[in-house]
Design a protein around this nucleic acid. Sequence first.
DNA 1: ACTATATATTCAACTAATTGATTATGTCAA
DNA 2: TTGACATAATCAATTAGTTGAATATATAGT
Lengths: 186, 186
Amino acid sequence: MALAHAILATLLDSSQSGYDLRKCFEGSVGFFWQASFQQIYRELGKLEEQGLVQSEAIAQQGRPDKKVFAVTAEGEAFLQAWIRTPCEMAPIRDDLLVKMFAGFLVPKVEMLAELKEHRSLHQERLAIYQQIQRNAYANPENLSEKELFHYLTLCGGIQYEQGWLNWCEEAISILTKSSASSVSPQ
Amino acid sequence: MALAHAILATLLDSSQSGYDLRKCFEGSVGFFWQASFQQIYRELGKLEEQGLVQSEAIAQQGRPDKKVFAVTAEGEAFLQAWIRTPCEMAPIRDDLLVKMFAGFLVPKVEMLAELKEHRSLHQERLAIYQQIQRNAYANPENLSEKELFHYLTLCGGIQYEQGWLNWCEEAISILTKSSASSVSPQ
DNA sequence: ACTATATATTCAACTAATTGATTATGTCAA
DNA sequence: TTGACATAATCAATTAGTTGAATATATAGT
């Protein structure tokens, strides 16, 4: 279970509200973890109970009040201890691959359409990550400790998307060739 | 929720017991889905209730009896319908990337050790997949419909592992360079 | 005035996944 | 003959994740 740790790691970068965290998780932090706001609020509650984060109510003009969460010393120690314990490889659980495994059940054109859709989704995502790379990490040699690790995380997201993109291209190419020479089932 | 669909797709390939399914999920089918045997048995129970699979008790000599599950016509239609509905990209949730994001909390040598461990894990996995590729799919041009789709799934696993491997190499290289010139904390 | 969007949080119900144990039978090796 | 391992299945408890809704305030556009 790493949602708690992902939240701590994000808050360590900058203290913020659950709402802002959620935006991080669908934005820049999304290349290593994703979570809904219900999950985030629930987890923040638990973390506060355990004393790993603490909140401060901030009154705002023209907007609802917000609770800004910050990592405590215990929270940092907890995160550090977790980082030091070895972890397993993340298991693959991908709907599109399951579909592909039984793809002979539908006409090839339909599988091709889904593959092309995913290709463009991964292309978009990759383009976003590469833009972050160009804008924020123009010369990786001169980064601070913290920035360097954030940069490595971004690189992970890029490799991941690149991998999927390669596969989409490969699968489209193979399926296109084979459907040119044979008739698809219904 | 694609566990049910992953089970149906696997059973469609060959009818088998929950125990055998579990072995598939940690073996060759593992490049698109992973599940524990508790999950599999529970899901098989549900699928049987819904009439999507049916079981036959097989008495064995020298071993406990087993229940072999087969996909019904309804099960196949159900799977086909699911394949035809578009799906989203799989979200990334990777412990190692979370660790990396807050990697500045521990000495670089420790992060490097973890990265090297994961590099070898991904290398091993990739080697297994590539061996399957060489053994079972020596010339992808002459595959049957079904085999072709299974082959594409394998390609997905290969690209995935290759992507992580690339990242491990990249991260190790960058961290090694930077730790040569600076002292680690802690 | 009405609608949509954005900020900010929470509740309730449900489904999925993990962890750990339990119950059988049989084989093989020390 | 004891222990380790493989086959085969299930139960109970807990944790994690999803879905859908509700509440409240403010801004911008039609």
